[in-house]
Computed example of a mutant assay.
Amino acid sequence: MAPTLRRTPRTGSGYIEPLLEIPNALPLHMVLVPGGTFMMGSPEDEPDRLGREDPQHEVTVPAFFMSRYPVTQAQWKVVAELETVERSLKSEPSYFKGENRPVEQVSWYEAVEFCNRLDSLTKRPYRLPSEAEWEYACRAGTTTPYYFGETITNDVANYVGEETTPVDHFGIANAFGLSDMYGNVFEWCQDHWHDSYKGAPTDGSAWLSKNESAGRIRRGGSWKHYPRICRSAYRNNDSPKSLSSNLGFRVVCSAPRPLQ
Rank of each mutant, 00 (worst) to 15 (best):
A2D: 12
P3T: 13
T4Y: 08
R6V: 06
G12A: 13
Y15N: 04
E17K: 00
P23A: 03
N24M: 00
L26A: 04
L26W: 11
L28Q: 08
P34D: 12
G35A: 10
G35D: 04
M40P: 01
M40W: 11
P47F: 10
D48K: 09
R49K: 11
R52A: 11
E53M: 00
D54T: 12
Q56I: 02
Q56W: 00
E58T: 14
E58Q: 13
P62R: 12
P62I: 13
F65E: 04
F65N: 06
S67T: 06
R68V: 05
P70N: 04
T72F: 02
A74W: 06
W76M: 04
S88R: 09
L89A: 11
L89Y: 05
S91R: 06
S94M: 09
F96E: 12
E99N: 12
V106R: 01
E110C: 10
E110I: 07
R117P: 06
D119G: 06
D119F: 09
L121I: 12
Y126R: 01
L128F: 10
L128W: 02
S130R: 03
A132V: 06
W134K: 00
A140D: 08
P145W: 10
T151L: 01
T153M: 05
N154G: 15
V156H: 01
A157E: 05
D168P: 01
I172R: 03
A173Q: 00
N174D: 12
F176P: 00
F176D: 02
F176I: 04
S179Y: 02
D180T: 00
M181S: 09
Y182V: 02
N184C: 08
V185K: 07
F186R: 02
E187F: 05
W188V: 04
Q190E: 08
H192R: 05
W193T: 13
D195N: 10
A200P: 00
P201Y: 03
P201F: 00
S205L: 03
W207G: 13
W207C: 15
E212D: 14
A214Y: 01
R218E: 01
R218Y: 05
R219D: 05
R219L: 02
G220I: 03
S222F: 03
W223H: 06
W223I: 12
H225E: 14
R228T: 10
I229K: 07
C230Q: 04
R231T: 08
S232C: 15
A233K: 12
Y234T: 09
R235N: 06
R235E: 04
N236D: 15
N236P: 00
N237T: 00
S239V: 09
S239G: 09
S239K: 09
L243Y: 15
L243F: 15
G248R: 03
F249N: 04
R250Q: 08
V251F: 07
V251G: 00
Q260I: 09
Q260L: 11
